[in-house]
Design a protein around this nucleic acid. Sequence first.
DNA 1: CAGTGAGCGAGCTTCCGCTTGACTT
Length: 773
Amino acid sequence: MSKNLVIVESPAKAKTIEGYLGKDFLVKSSFGHVRDLVTKDLSIDVENGFKPLYEILPDKQKMIRELRKMVEGAEVVWLATDEDREGEAISWHLAEVLGLDPAKTRRIVFHEITKSAITEAIQKPRNIDLNLVNAQQARRVLDRLVGFELSPILWKKVKPSLSAGRVQSVAVRLIVEREEEIRAFTSTYAFKVTGLFDVENEFGKAKIKADLPKRFQTSEEAMKFLEICKNAGFKVAEVETKPGKRSPAPPFTTSTLQQEASRKLGFSVSRTMTVAQQLYEAGKITYMRTDSVHLSQMALGMAKEEIESVFGKEYHKSRQFATKSKGAQEAHEAIRPTYLNNSTIEGDAAQRRLYELIWKRTIASQMTDAILEKTNIYIDISTSKEQFVATGEVIKFDGFLKVYMESTDEDVENEEGLLPPLKKGEALGLDEIQAVQKYSQAPPRYNEASLVKKMEELGIGRPSTYAPTISTIQKREYVVKEDRDGNTRDFEQITLKGGQIKSVVKSEKFGFEKNKLFPTDIGELVTRFLVQYFTDIMDYNFTASVEKEFDEIAEGLKEWNQIIKDFYGPFHKKVTETLESREKAKGEKLLGVDPGSGKNVYVKIGRFGAMAQIGDTESEEKPRFAGLRKGQSIESISLEEALKLFDFPRTIGEYEGEDMVVGIGRFGPYVLHMKKFYSLSKTDDPATITAEAAIVLIEEKRSGDANRIITEFAERPDIKVLNGRFGPYISIAKENYKIPKDKTPAALTLQDCLDIAKNSAPTGKKKVAGRRK
DNA sequence: CAGTGAGCGAGCTTCCGCTTGACTT
């Protein structure tokens, strides 16, 4: 047994550190948090100082048992979890759960995984910082109180199984409010004028493009200006050159990596994290969940060496960046390659591309500025006071641009390049002038990565939760990620060329969206409800302001229980009031009157989502209901579309002597035949599908089911060997069992199946409490 | 998967943050 037991959070880290520490040290990992609030109920004693009721996480119990044994044999236990609020709490929970003797327990921290940093940390142990631990407990308790008191209100007042929380509800709010802005937006237009001029001087012939800063509001004004230009002369009024520079972006944090991987590689945030995790476990990059832009001394040294040898001394500039983001805890380094001399790695395409992105960004951050020269050329018009302006930019020294340029979310229209050499007073020939009708654009919708960027700005969520939060708000159906077709619109283009003015009307596409986040009806309804009754929690600054209080707890200036008490009093009162007095929120909207019955037609949210309703609920006669289809929404559905939903179920014909009925259910349109359901394909329209097409569907499903069955047993009809999506399996009653690799599925006898079932656990039924899925 | 919706009531759902595999029919 080793004399020293070191506990870190991540197993990959444990492996590396063990190599540095030698044989007297055994390094183990806690795999993150080991203990949390009991999953069921609030598990906080609000009457007694908000005492939390903790339990060891179910999937950590085995690991804790093993650690306990190792602790017995160890002389010193070193708690080396991360140096932030959560890391301090993990150490404290470990100390509690393992029953550590303070006399033989040391708390150490290090920011980088290098031999010197770790041996140095061992020289400077400290005790667990209980103030920091209490700040974490306050954070944890607050989140549980908010989540577990708000969610049940939604189950009662909106729809079962919904959720609300400090982070997710504000993330949804961002998307809902952006959508409202886009709806309220009315596009205006102006005519943008661009001139193309001919240059002919001692340096040769060239063209120069210049814009008119003034825009015209109407077609007539633009036309009038072109008329004025018809017989005008043009000459260079002034040539202005200004030096400029551009500096590299800091190395990656989780959030900026997600943004750039989305823009440059088209990765979703979860894809980025999965691939980054693979790189981390393979030892290729440093830790991928970080909010720090800090680079270790070792990294700075490696960057210098690499840049000087590949690009030359003049390209290197050592830089250390400062973290700007709200609430950053900086327990780790920035995300960087472990070895900066490897510009590429072995691996699959995604791993190679993400690695190269990280390498370029890191290297560029340690390179010199790009030196630019910006040129403005002002062009006089003999018949007008207006001036054309041509702008150009020349790179005098490329610096970091040799390696990497950060992308932006907005598309940049103007590419500024080199301008031909020109002198003041020089006359220019006119090639053409164009006035083009340009529309103003609505604010852009969020995609996953730009939502993460906004969340980080507001300080809501942490590097480890950005990706899970985005998946939660989609799973709850508050938000959908999808593509939407745009529209087309006409724009006018007026051209002056060869003394002639011509106007043409062209059409352009706009508003096309790809992989953007849209709010659903439920998302909008829940957001409006929460903003109305829980304004403070839904405030974009709520997290930032509670973080300030957590900091005060961490500094020992305030008691955590008192902070929570001050919050909980008014909050809980509001919860009770809302539960008692508020009406259900249904988001009901009157669409119009059904011409058939003369009754009102509504759309609203019910227990199973959005639905249409004919007739009033207060009336004697029971109203009729029909669920909205996928892609339809309360916001946009028309009366005609709503009425069509009531055309189902309808009988479309007979097959084998039984009716075929088309209906629309929870999982979309279907054909019902002999009590069996057959889903329509995406291309079939339930309103027009023919009996022939329905029969094809039925037959296809039947032959598919036949292939599914490998073996059936006459004596036990509840036992079958089946072909599934993941290969053959055994089905007994409702339980499924894996087939051992050394067995041939088709050759299994009934006895074999029973033996396999007896000796193995059924799949998929494993319910681990406290596990989010 | 399974084709519901008023209202009643049973029993269920739910938070954020730290870590990885196990698992999917």
